[in-house]
Every structure is written in structure tokens, then in C-alpha cells.
Amino acid sequence: MSVAPDQEWQLSPESDALIYPANGKTLVKPFILTTAVANGALRAVDNYDYSLRTELKALGYDLIVVAHPPEGDLAKQADSVRTAILRTIAEQQGDAPLVVGGIGRGALTSRYALVKMERERLTHQTALYFSYDGHAPSAQEAEQLEQLGDWPTIPKLLNLITFGEAPQVHGEQFAETKIGSPLSGEVPPVSKQHGSWLLERLP
């Protein structure tokens, strides 16, 4: 079911971004989703039961899928997310706020990228951050995050949980949390239950 992207950005030797503009080639309402498995990224947002990509396009959102290896240095992977955010802002037409988040470890790298950008006083234009089965950081990664500020303070934070096997992030820092049943797959596909809930809360 996966559709070829309109463009691909190489963010680093190990990370790429797949670009799906809603209308033509222009980025207007960016939705950046990070995942840690390249070939599973599209299955997560474009599976046979539900296509988050299609639903985003219908609402005029431009999907940008950032993919990096499932393991690696958190700071370096977050730098790829930051590169994607900055390039998106540079190419965007208009001033619509960004939506930034991820699945599994991708949620963690997106979180780190936003926290570091705020610490460095870089504008990320992000109004909403979402974590879909976000991985909990290791002890070392948690220390790195704490030194930067732990959580981004500018965007609204949403948490989507499917009770998968990986350690997931919980906490009062989230404005809202949606809990649902898990779907199978190396990267858990975004279900209609979770996708519809998230779409209703987009800026």
C-alpha cells in the first residue's frame, strides 16, 4: 500500500526523510514523524487497516517521515530530527505551526531534538509534540535529557500508548493520553483508534 515519496532528504549518513506534501510540492502544514526502522516507517502510517498518511493529506497536512536506525547515539539521531525541522521551516510557505513526534525510539529522538533546540534558543515552530509508544530513555540518556531540560516546554504534549513490550513513557507532563490495544509489527502501525484521536487534536 505504500506510496513513493515526492522527495527524499538525506539528513545524515544513516538518516533520511521521506516527504509527502498534501498539495503539490510545497510544504504548508508540516507533520514530522520520526521512527527508528526505515522500511517499517511507511507501514506504520500507511497500513491495510488504516492510513494516517491519507487522513493527514485529506486535512492538508504534509507528512515528513524521518527514519534512522533502531540503535545509535541519541544526540546524533536527534541532530537528524533537528535538521529535518530546520529544513522544513526553511522550505515552508506560510506560518502554520509544526507537529513533531514519533513512534518508539523516534518519539525519544524527537523529544531530545525539541528540548535541545529550546535550550539553544532555536525556533522550532512546533505547537504539538506526540509520543506513540515512546521509549523510555536509558539512564545515560535520561541524564542527558535532564541537563537540557527533560521535556520541551513550548508545544502541547500528547501521549499515545498501546501497551507494547518496550518500556513506555508515562507522566504528568502530557496534556492528554490515549490508551488503546496494540497492533502487531516491528514498528506498531498507527491504528484508526489512535490516529483519529490524534487528528482531532492537531493545531
Rank of each mutant, 00 (worst) to 15 (best):
G94Y: 03
A67T: 15
L160K: 00
G40W: 10
L56K: 08
Q173A: 06
K192S: 14
Q10G: 10
Q193E: 14
D73N: 07
A67H: 08
Q125G: 11
Q125F: 12
Y48D: 13
D62R: 09
E165D: 09
V28I: 14
L74A: 13
A78N: 10
K178H: 09
Y132D: 12
V99T: 10
T26C: 05
Q168I: 11
E14I: 15
E186N: 11
G171F: 03
V28P: 09
Q10S: 15
T123F: 11
G185V: 01
S110Y: 06
V81G: 08
G195L: 02
H194I: 06
S80D: 15
Q92N: 07
D133P: 00
Y61N: 10
Y50S: 00
M1N: 11
S138V: 09
T34K: 01
L202H: 04
Q193A: 10
Q77V: 12
R87D: 14
T123G: 12
P155H: 02
Q147V: 08
D6R: 11
L148C: 02
A142P: 03
K25G: 14
S51R: 01
A113P: 09
Q144N: 02
D150H: 11
Q92H: 03
T126C: 10
W197P: 00
D73G: 05
L108F: 08
F31G: 07
L145W: 06
E172P: 05
P13D: 13
V169R: 09
K29F: 01
T153W: 03
Q93C: 08
K25N: 13
Q140F: 07
N39P: 11
T35N: 10
H170W: 10
S191L: 01
A136P: 02
V65G: 01
T126A: 08
D73F: 05
Q92R: 12
H124I: 03
A41G: 13
Q77E: 12
S110T: 11
T83I: 12
T34P: 06
T126V: 06
T35H: 07
A44H: 00
Q10V: 13
E146P: 00
L56F: 05
T54N: 12
K25D: 15
P137W: 09
A44G: 00
I103E: 00
A38R: 14
A142I: 01
S15Q: 09
A113M: 06
R87Y: 09
E176V: 01
G102Y: 06
I85A: 11
L27M: 02
R43D: 15
R119N: 15
L42Q: 15
E118L: 02
L56C: 04
S191D: 04
G102H: 06
T35W: 04
V3H: 04
Q173K: 12
R119V: 04
V66L: 09
Q125C: 14
L108W: 04
L114N: 06
V115S: 02
S196G: 06
S181I: 14
I103P: 06
L199Y: 05
K156C: 10
R119M: 13
R53L: 15
L148W: 06
W197A: 00
L59Y: 06
E186M: 12
Q144D: 03
A58I: 05
Y112H: 12
Y20H: 00
N159P: 01
A17R: 06
G104H: 05
K57E: 10
V65Y: 03
A113S: 12
N23V: 15
N39T: 12
